[in-house]
Design a protein around this nucleic acid. Structure first.
Length: 265
DNA sequence: TACAATGTTTTAAG
DNA sequence: CCTTAAAACATTGT
């Protein structure tokens, strides 16, 4: 489920626990999302620590603990963060449970494409600091976008937009949404997008990110009804703009949805 | 039953 | 070193 704005929404769920000490840590030792983590060290550092603050970068979420630990969480395809009653039992796909006096902070992911990272110490780890420019940040200019598209010149634009090294936070539905709003066919080679198309694409990338953060990111409200968003999931839908039939096809292993009339090749 | 699901990593080839 | 493309990963629901 989670792309940029959904990730922000899930980060916010754990805000209820900001400032409170962790009294107990429960982990799913064998599960894939915790692979590579020294679990005894994680439990030792987090037990008694206070959850101090949290941020997101694209699809990544970072939690800082006082005095000396950082947790990174990627939700993968089906991950979610939630708050439960303090004594709620750990369930089958709960990979990490941080218990506080008044609540339990839970990371659940049944499909297990998500990933937890951990770093001890007061310093921010490289996996939190060495990250590409976000779409809504100042360095993400049209020139920056042009360079990114040239680096993926032969790749269909839809697939290029899913590259987290250039477009952190953009996922399958956001990429379809941006291209539909920009009237660009998903199959077009990224390197062939220039001029007015490039300017439009840049603007739509930023506005789709901004507006989804204001709607989905805040209260998990739906994106605007005028967007492709609500129509792309099921086959047989129609274009909100021209009311023509939408097309679905697999492109580079992912489902793409577009309007052949509004987005000609 | 077989396939698809809002994601990344690995592997291989050019 | 860089780019491209497909398979693999694990689970659930249709």
């Amino acid at each position: 489920m989670p792309e940029l704005a959904e990730v922000e929404y899930f980060r916010k769920q754990w805000e209820a626990g900001h400032g409170s000490p962790i009294v107990k840590v429960e982990v799913h030792a064998k599960a894939r999302p915790l692979r590579g983590i020294p679990l005894p060290e994680l439990v030792r550092h987090l037990t008694g620590a206070r959850l101090a603050s949290s941020t997101t970068h694209g699809k990544q979420i970072f939690f800082r603990f006082h005095p000396d630990a950082t947790l990174g969480i990627h939700l993968g395809m089906t991950g979610r963060l939630s708050v439960r009653e303090a004594d709620a039992p750990q369930e089958k796909h709960d990979h990490l449970v941080l218990r506080q006096a008044k609540r339990a902070l839970v990371f659940t992911d049944f499909r297990m494409f998500g990933r937890v990272r951990f770093a001890a110490g007061k310093e921010r780890p490289a996996w939190e600091t060495d990250l590409p420019a976000e779409v809504l940040s100042a360095p993400f200019t049209p020139a920056y976008l042009r360079d990114a598209l040239q680096r993926r010149a032969r790749t269909p634009i839809k697939a290029a937009l899913l590259d987290q090294a250039f477009f952190p936070g953009i996922g399958n539905w956001m990429a379809d949404e941006v291209l539909w709003q920009a009237r660009i066919a998903p199959q077009r080679p990224a390197g062939a997008i220039a001029g007015k198309d490039l300017t439009t694409l840049h603007g739509k990338l930023r506005s789709v990110c901004r507006i989804s953060m204001e709607t989905i990111g805040k209260e998990f409200n739906d994106a605007p009804a005028s967007w492709l968003f609500s129509r792309r999931w099921k086959k047989g839908g129609s274009c909100p703009r021209c009311h023509g039939p939408l097309r679905h096809a697999t492109l580079r292993g992912r489902t793409a949805c577009w309007c052949p009339k509004c987005q000609p090749k």
